[in-house]
Amino acid sequence: MNTNATQSLDTRGMNCPLPILRTKKALSILGAGETLAVTATDPGSLKDMQAFCKQTGNELISSSANQGEFEFLIRKA
């Protein structure tokens, strides 16, 4: 888990579309430029998070996969 992020969100065990819905909710209370670290186990989240960020204009700073766990760092636009 990225400790430098403003806020972190654990969506492990959740399935589509919950990780996206929770991410959206968590981002909504952040200010512009603040960051959110998301952990997930949903294999679809790797593609979905990219699409979500592209569509909503938020920046996907990094995404990584490690033994069935995915980590994303998002900067709010």
Binding site: C16, P17, I20, T23, K24, Q55
Partner: peptide, 11 residues
């Protein structure tokens, strides 16, 4: 509901 909630999340 999945499509609608996801579309909502996408703005």
């Amino acid at each position: 509901f999945i499509l609608a909630s996801t579309a909502g999340a996408l703005g």
